[in-house]
Amino acid sequence: MVGDMILSVNKDTLIGSSYDSAASLLKQTEGIITLVVCNPKRDTQLDGSVISKDLDKKMSGTDGATTSTLEPSTLLEEPIDPLTSPIKPGRECTIEINKDKMGLGLSIVGGCDTLLGVIIVHEIFSDGAAAKDGRLKPGDQILEVNSEDFRSIPHKKALTALRQTPSKITMVVYRDESIANSAISGKEEDFLDVIEVELMKKPGKGLGLSIVGRKNGNGIFISDIVPGGAAGVDGRLMKGDQILSVMGQDLKNATQEEAAAVLKLATGKVSIKLGRLKARPSPSTSDNESLTSESDTLACRSVVLKRGSKGFGFSIVGGYGSLHGNIPIYVKSVFEDACKNVLHTGDQIIAVDGIKLQGRTHQEAVLILKNADNIVTLKILS
């Protein structure tokens, strides 16, 4: 299948081989070719075993073996042209886009310092180079830009890198298969993880967030979150979230002025339904989440906590497969005075006593904290 990794050909290993050396080896093989292949994404190989298939020039139905009449050279995939090749779902693709006078013409959300964890294309502007190129879509994950790694990069650093790109941009992108399949329906809701929150709006104060309309088309989005405000304290909202409804009132087709009026008039417990672009990290992103640049590493700090009668004095939110999507583990609330000077709502927990939490479910993170020693060291990204 497309995406299978070829580990060896007739007992000659290809691990670490270049494209040219692998192509040369495959072209030189004759007769029966035994390939050892694996695919980490394939659900049928849950035990981690390696699939071995014999490829012969004659069809054979014995023992359910898979055979092929292809010549060895036809097993090769020719190098693709990044200027014209399409983005294929479920695999990393390299594309090239030439900027015009209107620039690249897209907006992004996410980053390693946000609830998304990765950089996602948020909107494609109709007058920009990306729209004219026609391949990028909202929801695509940006992995590299001109050889700069975007797999674990803060939002502001990604913005700066995109703004400083030359006229020719080479990007490595990943489109999740589930997002690609939902695009067939044409319903924008299928691209979103729906999140419902309740914020307490105090008399005379707002919700602590700013909104903006989409440049092309309908939609109201969170453009900023005020630190210390109701939205910031809750910790579940982020820039780029679409506001689908407030107190049951549908805002999917509302103007920015209409949405601002609804938010302003709401009082007490304000229920908000949000839509967030689905973001399942690509395989390489999951493998490289721990590989951060020197500047990113400096942003992390270590916190030592002692277990008390109420545990370590804080609660967590997030995790892979959580109700809020596939997001990192964050501090939800801090309820012990001893913790309030070192932990804050929204801090990302990178590791617990050296155990990395990237890719962990919420339940796994809870168990790691529960089973930790009475004195625990947390690696925190604020």
Rank of each mutant, 00 (worst) to 15 (best):
L83N: 11
L55V: 06
T34W: 12
V352C: 08
F314L: 03
D100N: 08
I220F: 04
L305K: 03
S107F: 02
L357R: 05
A372F: 07
Q358P: 12
M247V: 11
V194M: 14
R307G: 01
I211M: 04
V352K: 05
T84M: 01
L378R: 03
R151E: 01
L25K: 15
L75V: 01
G354Q: 04
G346K: 07
I33P: 08
V352S: 08
T377Q: 07
D353E: 11
G204R: 00
R301P: 00
A351R: 08
V109H: 02
K379L: 14
G61T: 14
I119E: 03
S322T: 08
P283W: 00
L237D: 13
A266S: 10
A65T: 12
T292M: 12
L381C: 07
G111S: 02
G208Q: 04
V334H: 11
T13K: 01
K156D: 15
I169V: 15
K264S: 15
M1E: 09
K41D: 01
L298G: 10
E71S: 06
V352F: 09
V173P: 05
S302A: 13
G64N: 03
E123G: 00
S322L: 08
I329K: 09
S315N: 10
D176V: 08
T84I: 04
T377W: 03
T361G: 11
I32S: 10
I108L: 01
T292G: 01
C38N: 09
D140P: 04
F221W: 11
I222R: 11
F335H: 14
I349A: 09
K168L: 15
E289N: 11
Q256E: 15
R360L: 14
E289V: 01
T84Y: 02
R280P: 10
G64P: 04
Q249R: 10
A129G: 03
V376Y: 07
E71N: 07
L305E: 00
